[in-house]
Design a protein around this nucleic acid. Sequence first.
DNA 1: AAGGGGATGAAAAACAGGTGAAACCGCCTG
DNA 2: CAGGCGGTTTCACCTGTTTTTCATCCCCTT
Lengths: 232, 232
Amino acid sequence: MPLRILLVEDEAELAGAIQAVLRAQQHIVDHVAEGLGAWSLIRSELATYNLAIVDWMLPGLSGPELCRRLRGAGLTLPVLMLTALADTSHRVQGLDAGADDYLSKPFAMEELLARIRALQRRQPNYRELMLRAGPYLLDPAESCLSVQAAAGITRIVLSAKELQLMAYFMEHPRQIIPGARLRSQLWSLEEDPISNVVAAQVRLLRRKLASHGLPSPIETVASKGYRFEPEP
Amino acid sequence: MPLRILLVEDEAELAGAIQAVLRAQQHIVDHVAEGLGAWSLIRSELATYNLAIVDWMLPGLSGPELCRRLRGAGLTLPVLMLTALADTSHRVQGLDAGADDYLSKPFAMEELLARIRALQRRQPNYRELMLRAGPYLLDPAESCLSVQAAAGITRIVLSAKELQLMAYFMEHPRQIIPGARLRSQLWSLEEDPISNVVAAQVRLLRRKLASHGLPSPIETVASKGYRFEPEP
DNA sequence: AAGGGGATGAAAAACAGGTGAAACCGCCTG
DNA sequence: CAGGCGGTTTCACCTGTTTTTCATCCCCTT
């Protein structure tokens, strides 16, 4: 299940490595180098993050300070704190500030991934479950979509982006979803703003459904966005 | 929900980029390059702005000065300040002058949009809600108009401009609204003043209602303007 | 009756989104 | 380590819709 992750880390090399690993896991990662940027990004609600990975030591607003602000603002966004300092006093300080977990550098990327999985499982609204909308049943674990039709059940294997897109549609059935919203929710922010990734990906999804002989549940509402209509 | 935005920025290139992005979001944007122009434009009440985006550094009247004047005049128009200077002292000065939010250059356009959304949400009269007038119910999120008649409820999908126009009428029921006011409220100022966009768009709206078998609630008051009459 | 403002329909312009081919990219395999 | 592969993105071009313009007509005021 792909997550939307905010990485707050000032060491460029480490940040790059983490990003690469997370992206390889299909996660959507935004990276900021300093605390204030992270704070304003979160507050701006540009994207909805499922997790923040925050370095302890940051220029400007430090990790624990950022954490405290988040909690002060009533946000429950899970925070995984990274630190070079292994001793327990820091660990306690970090958790006090509202971090949910704590990982001391250097660490194996595998451990980071494991911690992330654990953190997700602890979420109250944790859902490794399937998503249903009308005859559509999405299985994130298997990355496949099952569609019930008169002719029987069709099972379609989806790629990572197709899955994300379909999930977003199924979570917002019947609503007009502006392309720009898909853009900011499903793609990382730093990319070229004049691109038609969204249109291209929607097309791939539509085409995949069509190639299995299914009618497209995704309609285009001219110059307003897309709408997912589960019932034909 | 389209906003009427005043952009006060002297760097032509940046201004153009911002305008393009905002327009893409259906907002109506007026651009002035310097502070005094902005001040007189606002004071003239030619249009009612929902937001001003103001550069810090401007020829003549600077951003913070403009801000102070606005507040001095008792205007609550939300102001988003732009600045090349990232340090906190300026941030404080800007907020002191009466700005509502603060964004330091360079910034991602996405972040600008997010700030604007956040700012709107903070407005006391914030309304993402539907607008009702008599049997007419306007849903900006879905961009559609529902009309209750004896025959049942008719749902009409509106285009962006039709929605803006209908919203303006529904917010000012039974009043005579001069074409020029619609013009200045719903279209940006820099456009060709001898054009009949308003009449054309009113016609489009009327025609759309008629095509669904509805009587037109918009009447023309000869050489005075239009009047929206919700009850037949 | 003249003049002005608005109405009208057709056509043009502007724009968003669709499309297929090709490039790109990380990953796997030989 | 090269080559192939699937997935993803970009590019250039096409299509359909929305919005504006234009030329003309109509009708109400003065």
